[in-house]
Write a protein that binds this DNA or RNA. Structure first.
Lengths: 391, 391
DNA sequence: TTGTAAGCGTTATCAC
DNA sequence: GTGATAACGCTTACAA
């Protein structure tokens, strides 16, 4: 419908030759008198098949007929019923996105707003891309135990589904993928059953390791994991450890270095570590920015200067990382692009262009050197940046 | 389906007595061999009507029969087809949320991530509440000109829709509301056709005005609007102006005080203002936190100290407002609650408990005094706060 | 190029 | 308490 002109709604009611359809004497209560292809057909003087053809952009039609139908659709303000479409064709033009509720990520914490950022940005990117391709995006948040409910909803409402990392137990993925085109977001990329979209964790971690060793001369390190079972965290940790080992440095191995990806978790970890040993490694590399922020807070709280006493780095490049002091050296990850890429791939799978499970797609990342690693922060000030932004 | 056990999918395939249904010789290509109520019915030895009754929690059934059906559903891993349900019953168990794409809010700007916050938090709150009520949430982002496409998608996929402020021209709302239960979020509350959920802009703005005058003794002010046509911005401005007038203060009236709700917009506005007149009012009250941040940046960039030379306040209480220096005096707005409340109301409208258009619901807000207005910031440090958060 | 009619998987109205 | 069966609004063979 065209929402720019309310008056036509009246027209629709007057003209509607509703129930002209031959085989019906509507027995059900119908909430709103919705216009159907029968109405359009009878107004245009054609069959419903013809209306359907117009609706689906069937090419081999007499242009005049098409015009007629289009006009009738406009006049009656016809909006196709997607349930009927979905039922008949099996295609719903809806994609699902399964993510973790914030309480599931960090229960009990008042609010850690930035935690929302990753998922939100992905959702935004996905929605934008989906709507470009004519799909709608259905949200499926999962908390403690809602997983199977949510998955069922996806099955019954969507043509395909994007599963964010850790929303669904690994072993369930093949089952899901068997039933519905599935794309994994930020998973480990090892699933044979579904395509994975993720960022490059290898190159930037090696680069970062090299930078810390060659440029700043550090040799003792710790890696603050997010959640050890998270593929991203694991990959970042592994690549960092490997490279440091290759360069002859040492990385602590204590299991205490785990933050739940949160600021508060990182603070708690540092506290715990300090109870065991007052000394600190020369540099702490974190699996994400939020924990890096926590590490910096906690270190400074206990009298360590960053980066003079201990260098700290993050991963993500959330906006906060530019604003804290010291500004955070980190790895820029294209949040929205991840969502977009996932939808792109999923749409192509749904449309049969590519088949499910075909490998993984890796998006590039970039190391951003700011001051928390010991570099001079050469980025523009916020004001300058914003001003330039205005042209 | 229960996703905890992949093996049963095999069972489903073996047992399925598909196409037992009397009246069918499936002519269409069916992508996946989905289990239907026919399969369940034949496996349980009952009619499809009985299966449907179980599905809908019909109470007057022999428990034994119910058991039988439930077992069959479990065994076959039956998931009801929502398109069919929607077609037959007209109820889709899907709610729509229409919001503005970020590019529509602030085109051309690189990324102003915090801009996302309001909408994202609302979406999260809405999704959580929706899923509690058994509904799914469908996203409908609108950019430049996608409005009517998106609205159509809502019509054809949803039982009801939440319209965020400024997503749809005012005059189109009655048309939409006539066709679909509609709730307005952060609108002006004046629509007769749809219920509005919004926050209280009156009490906190009056309180703030009083605070600035009585506690700090300011008498010259400016109000940095977001977008003048935005009901929230307008309400905040009006209430502030009224109260200041009552108290005998002055508020500038130049139209230059408008930020587009963004940091960069606020900076640009301050720059423009400075070109006209080097002096500044004693206090600048902003329609949201993002613009307050821009105001502070720009003022300090030009040698003004905040709050000593100029006091600044915001609205929203985004996490950044606690972290900047000086910390921002602002009004806390319950983002997620807004989403929740909107869904709550919408669900009740959809279920016929209350009728559409019945008044508006106003959520409370709270003034948070920090240092940018001249108060001493008594809030805990970040570290302390985070630590306490851990218990 | 267009029309006829079967079928998609549910719900709901009748009977029994 | 349960079973037949029509109807929901659309797509798609197949026929014309």
């Amino acid at each position: 419908m065209t929402i720019d002109d309310d008056s036509q709604i009246a027209v629709a009611k007057d003209i509607s030759t509703k129930s002209n359809r031959s085989h019906v004497t509507s027995p059900q209560l119908i909430a709103s008198p919705n216009v159907t292809i029968y109405d359009v057909a009878s107004r245009a003087g054609v069959s419903i098949a013809t209306v359907s053809r117009v609706l689906n952009g069937y090419s081999q039609m007499k242009p005049a007929t098409r015009e007629l139908v289009v006009a009738a659709m406009r006049d009656l303000r016809f909006v196709p019923n997607n349930s009927a479409r979905g039922l008949s064709s099996g295609t719903k033009m809806v994609l699902g996105m399964v993510f973790l509720h914030s309480e599931a990520i960090d229960p009990g914490l008042e609010v850690e707003e930035d935690t929302l950022l990753f998922t939100d940005a992905v959702i935004r990117g996905a929605e934008e891309e989906a709507s470009k391709s004519g799909y709608a995006l259905l949200l499926g948040g999962v908390g403690k135990a809602r997983v199977s409910e949510t998955i069922d909803r996806m099955f019954s409402n969507c043509d395909g589904v994007i599963l964010l990392d850790r929303t669904v137990p690994d072993r369930a993925i093949p089952t899901i993928a068997k039933r519905l085109p599935t794309v994994l977001l930020a998973g480990n990329g090892k699933s044979r059953s579904a395509t994975t979209i993720r960022v490059d964790n290898e190159e930037p971690m090696k680069k970062l390791a090299n930078h810390l060793v060659s440029v700043h001369g550090y040799s003792s390190f710790a890696f603050m994991a997010g959640i050890r079972t998270s593929p991203d965290s694991a990959a970042r940790e592994m690549n960092f450890r490997e490279e440091i080992a290759r360069l002859g440095g040492r990385v602590e191995t204590d299991s205490i270095w785990e933050s739940s990806y949160t600021t508060s978790g990182a603070i708690a970890a540092i506290e715990a570590r300090l109870k065991m040993d007052r000394s600190m490694p020369e540099a702490i590399v974190c699996a994400n920015d939020q924990s890096a922020v926590g590490v910096i807070y906690a270190l400074e709280h206990h009298g360590f200067r960053v980066p003079q006493d201990v260098a700290v780095t993050g991963f993500d490049d959330i906006s906060l990382s530019r604003r804290i002091t010291p500004s955070l050296t980190t790895v820029r990850q294209p949040f929205q692009e991840l969502g977009k890429a996932a939808v792109e791939v999923l749409v192509r799978i749904c449309q049969g262009e590519i088949k499910s499970g075909s490998g993984s797609r890796v998006l590039p990342t970039k190391v951003i050197y700011r001051s928390s690693c010991g570099c001079a922060d050469v980025s523009e000030s916020s004001v300058e940046k914003f001003m330039r932004g205005r042209g």
